[in-house]
């Protein structure tokens, strides 16, 4: 048995090398796209004074969930400013927003396809298992080789790592829509596209929103790890504090991550529930799907 060795790693490495050599220009283009997106979002978040961004977030929070949440987010964001992590936090937020948006844009159609077409589901499921369970650091290696140091490998690794729950919960949500309600659409002569738009997606929305929430949360955790490949932001400080055994910096950067995480989680979970001022303005309209 000592000679028994399947060179999986070697082959994978050769594959990546081949891609780097032959498809280098494609990845350069992708890199510039990702970097461009990140820089635009980051510009929007980082250019205005902190207080303007904070007020904007607080107002959004007021609409999404109500007063308590608005006050709590104001306090949290002020704490980040007080810990001198504001710029890092905005960099990280920009990374999360870009990566999560791309992940969601890929995940939802894939989830719909998996729900509608059985073979797609059969293929997608193990792929999602693979993406979700492979240790997150491992993605960084090929990402680093393909996209070089910077935000691009961070974004790519984040997309891959965070996509799975978006696909899964979309598929689950659409499959879980009451069969009779779908039949009702069919029985009145609706086309499959109309049934998807008017029945399946609205009724699956709570599940899809849960998926989006998960994607964003996973993105945030991966973005911190992406600090290892020079993605910067809070992740950069976390890595630095680890290297220097700098407890003070570690706590401040870590706490900022926690505050961002809670903010993002509460925001995204509120969308499916229709609470706060937004709901009050559209009085009487019940939440979708909670039947």
């Amino acid at each position: 048995m000592e000679d028994f060795r399947i060179p999986v790693g070697e082959r994978a490495s050769e594959g990546v090398d081949w891609v780097v050599e032959n498809l280098g220009s494609l990845f350069d283009w992708l890199r510039s796209v990702f970097v461009g997106m990140y820089e635009s979002v980051n510009w929007v978040l980082s250019t205005p004074p902190a207080i303007v961004v904070i007020i904007t977030i607080v107002v959004l929070g007021l609409f999404a969930r109500g007063w308590t949440f608005a006050v709590a987010s104001a306090l949290g964001l002020l704490l980040i400013v007080g810990m001198d992590q504001w710029d890092n936090a905005m960099n990280t937020l920009a990374l999360v927003l870009v990566a999560a948006t791309i992940a969601i844009v890929l995940a939802i159609p894939l989830g719909i396809a998996a729900a509608k077409v059985r073979p797609v589901s059969i293929v997608v499921r193990p792929v999602m298992d693979f993406l979700q369970t492979m240790p997150a650091f491992v993605y960084l290696i090929p990402a680093l080789l393909l996209f070089r140091v910077g935000v691009a490998p961070g974004i790519v690794a984040t997309i891959i790592f965070a996509m799975a729950p978006g696909v899964r919960l979309t598929e689950l949500g659409i499959r879980g829509v009451d069969r009779e309600t779908v039949e009702a659409g069919q029985a009145f002569g609706a086309t499959p596209g109309r049934i998807l738009r008017q029945i399946q997606l609205p009724l699956a929305l709570p599940s899809i929103m849960a998926g989006i929430n998960q994607v964003i949360m996973l993105s945030l955790s991966m973005v911190v790890i992406a600090g290892l490949v020079g993605a910067g932001g809070l992740g950069g400080d976390v890595i630095t504090s680890l290297n220097r055994l700098d407890t003070a910096l570690g706590v401040e950067a870590g706490l900022s991550v926690v505050i961002l995480a809670m903010l993002l989680d509460r925001f995204t979970s509120a969308f499916g529930e229709r609470r706060g001022l937004y709901a009050a303005l559209r009085k009487g309209r019940p939440a979708v799907g909670n039947v």
């Binding site: 009779e180 039949e183 009702a184 029985a187 009145f188 609205p202 799907g289």
Partner: peptide, 12 residues
């Protein structure tokens, strides 16, 4: 057209 056992109304 059809009427369903569990009504199958569109809740939204």
């Amino acid at each position: 057209s059809m009427v369903f056992q569990q009504f199958a109304l569109l809740p939204h």
